[in-house]
């Protein structure tokens, strides 16, 4: 299931503006990799290049190679739609489909990609909701609208929706920034469980969160506003938070930045 991501020489542009410059890194399967760094340094842009969501933005353009095991996501003839089936994504703000019930939200990825038998779908919905630690809270109201849940529940619903299509990699773009500490804890616990099955990449502004959930941490920075963001270093989370090899990382983590 889980696959390794190997990025080399990746540049991403918005029109003529280069947002990230020459990034190379490896993301190990069955692990959690956290991206930290100041706002505007290109963490989210880089994350979105990993499932070809960057090019959905008008003017978005990518150069370089992203290998998913041995397939280049940006190779000739690669369909972005099938890339996104392999690499799922959870967004900053919970975004369940407002016209759909809890059940339909989880089933959306499968239903919209082809017809499934009702019984098989029931199983997958239950499994995904259990996987997202949401089943016990919503099993009695599967047919109620998904937007009636609380913020934390909605975010777990979105995670259930993402894992229902069984991707190889799960990208999370600040999944807890709109949530209270208790819901954050629930999602962090969930990330710990999900890494048994998926490769997880998470962008976060919360360094304690990066330290708590991730195995490896990447620090991004930018020289100045208007300059492209760069990967400063990537290492085991413990190393980054105790003894980073670059001074800028230490400054950022200890709050001496800027």
């Amino acid at each position: 299931m889980a696959k390794r991501i190997d990025v080399s020489g990746l540049n991403a542009y918005y029109g003529s503006f280069r947002a990230i410059e020459d990034i190379s890194m490896t993301v190990e399967p069955r692990s959690v990799t956290a991206f930290i760094g100041p706002s505007g340094c290109g963490k989210s842009t880089f994350l979105r290049t990993l499932n070809r969501m960057h090019e959905v933005t008008p003017g978005g353009r990518v150069e370089g190679k992203v290998m998913l095991d041995d397939e280049n996501l940006y190779g000739a003839g690669v369909d972005p739609v099938s890339v996104r089936r392999e690499v799922g994504m959870v967004f900053q703000r919970p975004n369940p489909f407002p016209t759909m019930s809890v059940y339909d939200n989880v089933a959306a990825g499968l239903r919209l990609n082809g017809s499934y038998k009702k019984a098989a779908l029931d199983d997958i919905v239950e499994k995904s909701l259990k996987g997202a630690n949401l089943w016990n809270e919503v099993k009695d109201r599967l047919n109620k609208p998904g937007s009636g849940l609380s913020g934390g529940q909605q975010q777990r619903l979105c995670i259930a929706r993402a894992i229902a299509v069984e991707p190889n990699v799960l990208l999370m773009d600040e999944p807890c920034s709109a949530l209270d500490p208790i819901s954050t804890l629930a999602i962090e616990d969930l990330i710990g469980e999900l890494k048994e099955r998926f490769t997880i990449v998470i962008v976060t502004h919360n360094m304690q969160q990066a330290a708590r959930v991730s195995d490896r941490t990447a620090f991004f920075n930018l020289a100045a506003v208007g300059q492209p963001g760069k990967l400063i270093e990537i290492d085991d989370t413990e190393r980054i938070f105790s003894n980073p090899s670059v001074q800028a990382t230490e400054d950022y983590i200890s709050g001496r930045f800027g």
Partner: peptide, 24 residues
Amino acid sequence: ELREASFALGVPKWRTILKVVLPT
């Protein structure tokens, strides 16, 4: 965000419009 959520599930654009955008 709804369009992006649908794209991220690997749903093609035309289906996203038909099943997510128009119903909303």
